[in-house]
Design a binder for these strands. Structure first.
Length: 693
DNA sequence: GATCCTCGAGTTCC
DNA sequence: CTCGAGGATC
């Protein structure tokens, strides 16, 4: 008797795959990320390989998936549109395995020269066949199931970069040239489209929706029945392959085909490269992986094609895929995992932040186990529940985010998460009541500095690099000091001695001395840093500096009235009120006095004594990426010392953007606005020599 | 009153 | 890095 388990599993997998393929291809509304689909697909393949008797005719592994949607006319492809074998091994080994397979199939010996490949990007859009007859675009069709697609001529005609007529005599003389390529949406176009959609929805428009990602947006737009509507949604196109050809001498290489396309006026991506052997493939894969986030469009990996057409023909096809090409995926940027619990953190200002505790999952190059859920609104919007399977993404940035939840994997007992109910209305750290201001999203702990969490955060903020810069006082140590009841208020930090530190675990004499030295060193500071370190609400680094500059002396700040505070740069009623209230409280006044008594000093009225050259006066800089010699903080300090301003975001008022390695969206914005971009060397050249230490 | 610009605050992993 | 919101500007 055969084992029943694999039979049942295979059937279940087939059903699931069918379902998701339908959601993805026909309805443009996937519920699981591609990586999860691939995993299910591979599991089914593995079962079928182990138990060939379980393979069925209709198994998703046996056909090119996709279906024809009602409303668009079916188009039978003259030459089938096949898919490319996908290598899911995202390491360099994937490329090496492909090269080894090709060499073996061509019966090449070990000493035969390296093969030439055309390496291309794998665009994340949808494949389209453009049929040109005598140079005229007569029809555009989707891939469909590979044999039959849908007629989308009306929407594809709206894509400005798709020529209605091919250029050059050869193209016009050819009876038929079918050009295959990818229709996709650039990321900026996608964002703009979704922005417009959001506004429409807010405005009460019915039947409008936002799109999950550029690929779905592109698919949705191409398969729009209404061409007028499609015209307002910018799509792009790259050509990369041929379908039926009658009366044209096809170039002998893949890269030659690209060149021929360009001559005909077809858009061809210029990241393609001819590379030699497996080393070349690996280098290309790595170079593209490094640039992936900076590309203006999404890709899901790269494609390697044997460059020489004669060799391609020699290799031929394996059932439904060419043997001479492979798609090499990049590491997944989206994964699913189990949301095991939702914790609540207390921030410095008392803000309660729900944090998802995830079953650790490898995504975008690191293992992620936590992700912020921001606030209750966000949880409700995404309908995330404990024990849900959620989709986790690490997009262009570093910070993981929860994209959504896989509804059908939700266990029956999953309850909606209610922050207030979960906490029973009390702060999880100090038990104080939690409150929410009218119209605000965030719940806050009302315990103030009585709350150990807020106290810890306040101390950490005080000791921070851009505040008092106390060396040797980190996360763990603050935790211990507060838990052990050694430090309750900021001034108590300065009363620490080797003796009471010795009581702590893992606190050798050496590190105790380090901390005491660090505290001693921090006493010499500036008024701006000191004001910032106090952690007054709405007073960040910049405002603190402005206050210091405006008032010059601490005592003048202490007695300033709200109208007087309003005279400070960038201080409005809310900030003025916050500052005034802070210093009006006797308890805060006392802390300030005690800190002064501890020996914290700065040059009162500083700024006048500063005679260093100010060549950058009036210039605004924005920093992005990582620099070679300077840290971001150093760069900021040096620019400010030279009279310049450093801002966080690029705008029309920005004079220079300084870009280091792996610069992100800010660089893009700078080019867009035509702002001068400097590299680190150019910045250093503008700065006066550094102060001797 | 609307729009643009900037600042503050919160956040992850190694 | 991104979001939200405070402040400035038209």
């Amino acid at each position: 008797m055969p084992d029943k388990a694999p039979i049942r599993r295979a059937a279940a997998l087939r059903e699931q795959l069918q379902h998701h393929a339908n959601l993805y291809y026909t309805l443009d509304a996937p519920q699981i990320p591609d990586a999860e689909y691939d995993r299910l697909f591979q599991e089914l393949q593995a079962i079928e390989a182990a138990h060939p008797e379980l393979q069925t005719q209709d198994s998703p592994t046996q056909r090119v998936i996709g279906a024809v949607l009602d409303g668009l006319a079916p188009v039978r492809h003259q030459v089938p549109m096949l898919s490319i074998h996908t290598e899911t091994d995202t390491t360099p080994t994937g490329a090496e395995k492909f090269d080894a397979r090709v060499r073996k199939a061509l019966a090449l010996g070990v000493d035969a020269p390296a093969l030439a490949y055309n390496a291309e990007l794998k665009f994340d859009g949808l494949a389209i066949n453009l049929r040109y007859e005598r140079g005229e675009l007569v029809q555009a069709a989707t891939r469909g199931d590979g044999e039959t697609g849908e007629d989308v001529t009306h929407t594809v005609r709206m894509i400005s970069t798709v020529p209605k007529r091919l250029r050059g005599a050869v193209a016009v003389q050819a009876a038929v040239i079918e050009v295959r390529g990818e229709v996709f949406m650039r990321r900026d176009d996608f964002e703009a489209l979704n922005e417009r959609q959001r506004k429409l929805i807010e405005g009460g428009a019915k039947g409008e929706k936002t799109f999950v990602n550029p690929r779905n947006a592109a698919a949705g737009v191409v398969r729009q029945l209404d061409a007028g509507k499609a015209a307002k949604r910018p799509l792009s196109f790259f050509a990369y392959a041929l379908g039926e050809v009658v009366g044209w001498a096809v170039p002998g290489t893949q890269h030659g085909l690209g060149a021929a396309f360009r001559k005909m006026g077809l858009p061809v991506n210029d990241d393609s490269q001819v590379v030699q052997g497996p080393e070349g493939l690996v280098r290309f894969h790595e170079a593209i992986a490094a640039r992936r986030d900076a590309l203006p469009f999404d890709i899901d990996g790269v494609v390697y094609k044997l460059d020489d057409r004669a060799q391609q023909e020699q290799l031929g096809f394996k059932s439904r895929e060419p043997r001479w090409a492979v798609a090499h995926k990049s590491p997944a940027q989206e994964q699913t995992t189990l949301l095991q619990d939702i914790d609540v953190q207390v921030g410095r200002t008392g803000k309660l932040t729900p944090v998802a505790k995830l079953l650790p999952v490898f995504v975008g190059g690191t293992t992620v186990s936590n992700a912020t859920l921001h606030n209750q609104d966000e949880i409700d919007r995404k309908d995330v529940r404990i024990n849900d399977t959620v989709i986790v993404r690490r997009a262009g940035d570093v910070i993981p985010e929860i994209v959504g939840t896989v509804i059908e994997k939700r266990p029956a007992d999953a309850q909606p998460f209610d922050l207030y109910k979960k906490l029973g209305g009390k702060c999880p750290v100090c038990g104080s009541e939690i409150t929410r201001e009218e119209g605000e999203v965030d719940w806050r702990c009302s315990g103030g500095l009585f709350c150990a969490a807020q106290r810890k955060q306040a101390i950490l903020h005080f000791a921070g690099r851009r505040a008092m810069d106390v060396e040797g006082l980190g996360d763990k140590l603050v935790d211990q000091l507060v838990e052990a009841g050694i430090v309750h208020t900021l001034p108590e930090l300065y009363q620490l001695g080797v003796a009471n530190l010795a009581a702590l675990e893992r606190m050798a004499e050496k590190s105790a001395q380090n901390l005491i030295d660090g505290l001693e060193k921090s006493k010499q500071t500036t008024l701006g840093r000191f004001l910032y370190a106090l952690g007054i609400r709405h007073v960040g680094e910049t405002t603190a500096k402005d206050l210091a500059k405006h008032f010059g002396q601490l005592d003048r700040v202490l007695i300033a009235t709200e109208p007087q505070l309003l005279e400070v740069n960038d201080v409005g009623p809310i900030v003025a009120h916050s500052i005034h209230t802070f210093f009006a409280q006797p308890h805060n006044r006392e802390i300030v006095e005690q800190l002064r008594a501890c020996g914290i000093t700065w040059k009162e009225d500083d700024g006048t004594a500063d005679t260093s050259p100010k060549p950058l006066l009036g210039q605004t800089f924005v920093l992005t990426g990582t620099f070679q010699t300077l840290s971001r903080d150093e760069a900021k300090d040096r620019i400010e010392a030279a009279g310049g301003k450093v801002s966080g975001s690029v705008s029309k008022k920005t004079h220079f953007v300084v870009a280091g390695a792996e610069a992100g969206s800010k660089l893009e914005k700078a080019t867009e606005l035509g702002i001068t971009v400097l590299d680190e060397a150019a910045l250093l050249a503008m700065l006066p020599a550094a102060d001797p230490p």
